[in-house]
Design a protein around this nucleic acid. Structure first.
Lengths: 151, 151
DNA sequence: CAATTTATATAAGTTACTGATATAATTGGC
DNA sequence: GCCAATTATATCAGTAACTTATATAAATTG
């Protein structure tokens, strides 16, 4: 499979994918590395988008086993970043809630990324900045589509 | 630190960061998950950009210890994805070369991302696609800046 | 050329995962 | 309404990938 197999867009998808790959590679290194695992950060991030979630729902989105999520949430709970609560409707279910402290972890990492990104945006020309600014709504929409949000 | 602290660009950096965060969240799930670790994939990716690299150079870019890289490269070598070679100029040094098979791992994951992304790009309007297409050169430049490339 | 520095390797311990299984609550057929 | 099957979470044992500390070997420096 090569670039030539994806010609049917106004947009060169392979180029977009490569550009985003390079952006990700760059941005992933911006936040100071605390010693949280990739999966723990991803779970916290998921919970900032939607909290509470069941353990099973987390296991599905994070692509790890239910056992891993049970253990992971136990660690998050121990560290005060999330809480287990019972579901009044269904006694089997554990609802995982993010705590303010847990949300702060994600927020501060985001702020670090924003600050780091800003330093490099300064190196772009006005026209370059404007072209990116003009694309943001479409990128947001694309991410919505990819993340399974309804239109 | 909040959005209001970054007003000095043509571009709302916080919005860009959020949009890229959402895009990353989406694209990271596109490739079929083989059982390689995040760090191993990252090392292979780094080696597709520049090979060979010394163990020490890899340790620096990947933000893990030298010990971890030594062990990781041993696993990559065992799996035929990378090779150690001696540096003729410096007997202490090990140069890590990516193999064709190792490059194929990264390439096939990239192809999966491109294919997955393409399916969602179809859901965008022509204007949305064009706005993203127009931003790609600027995003490439921004990624270059972030990844420390010379102008 | 001895002392220091640099590059990699090894050893021991820890953490975060997987797979298999256990427990408890709910649901569905009759 | 009750029992079997299903669903949701937890636990246990084992493994993989990391950490820190230390060892070894080559290069540099004074």
């Amino acid at each position: 499979m090569t670039i030539e197999n994806f010609p049917n867009h106004e947009l060169d998808v392979a180029e977009l994918a490569m550009a985003l790959e390079q952006m990700t590679r760059f941005m992933i290194r911006l936040p100071s590395v605390d010693k949280m695992s990739f999966t723990s950060l991803s779970v916290l991030h998921t919970l900032t988008l939607k909290s509470p979630l069941r353990l099973t729902e987390l296991a599905a989105t994070e692509q790890v086993t239910q056992s891993a999520i049970t253990q992971l949430v136990t660690r998050l709970e121990r560290d005060g970043l999330a809480e287990r609560r019972a579901d009044p409707k269904d006694g089997r279910v554990v609802q995982v809630h993010i705590t303010p402290e847990g949300a702060k972890v994600i927020e501060s990492r985001r702020d670090e990324r924003i600050a780091g990104l800003g330093r490099y945006v300064d190196g772009l020309s006005l026209e370059q900045q404007q072209s990116i600014a003009a694309a943001i709504p479409a990128l947001q929409r694309l991410a919505e589509l990819g993340n399974g949000k309804q239109p």
